[in-house]
Amino acid sequence: MSHHIVDFIDIYFTYPDGKQAVNGITCRINHGESVGIVGANGAGKSSLLMLLTGILLPAKGEIRVGETPVTKKTLSVIRQKIGFSFQDPDDQLFMTTVYDDVAFGPRNYGIDEPEVKKRVMKALETVGAVHLKDRAPYKLSGGEKRAAAIAAVLSLEPDILVMDEPTAALDPKARRRLMNLLKGFLHTKIIATHDLDMVLEICERTIVLKEGRVVCDGLSPEILNDEELLEQCGLEKPLALQNCPVCGSGKLYGSLLEGTGK
């Protein structure tokens, strides 16, 4: 299953204005892994995801998706393997109906119309948005937009799901629905987020970034319970791992930490 392995090999990237966003990141994400990428604002999370999808190309180093290096020439192949969901679903939804939007990707890859229809309906069913198929994307609520944007990505049947802040601006119920949805996906998942509670629930592994470097890479329950580390990186313990603010006792995720020595 080496074709679903993502390898970042000593990656550097500097924006044209001189901001060094990524400063030598090396890590490997294995097939089927669910990885949370966390860090303060400007830590390099979004840049890393954009490098992975080839929106940005590294100044130095190499990114490999399976056996294929991410270069200008391989973008088409890479992008068929990776489904990227933007932070703002509005950026992603540009067609006049949800159906056309979800069908946009498969049609671009020359898939014939009956198959496109099958894929679109399957993707919409997966995110529970079949009833939205004839609606105009800009008329949807935040949660519905997010669901449509994910369906648009899923219709390409990617091997790797990459998401930038998927729970941002979602109401608690929509957030919960999305999390349940993500739990059900067997894809490799790479999620950049500030929602550490979500990472704790969905991602078995967490990579902490600071100033474009990997500060820590390990099991989520361990990392997210390391108050000192989180503090250094401009983060805070997930609420589920904090004591009750009223009585000061009872960690919701205490059971997760058993055996980790924390």
């Binding site: 929106i55 992008r79 068929q80 950026d91 890859y109 390409l156």
Partner: peptide, 17 residues
């Protein structure tokens, strides 16, 4: 928006299906 199009295989040829 253009990046989102590019990521889903848009290469300048719009395919209405």
């Amino acid at each position: 928006v253009y990046q989102a199009m590019g990521l889903r295989g848009f290469n300048g040829e719009y395919n209405p299906g």
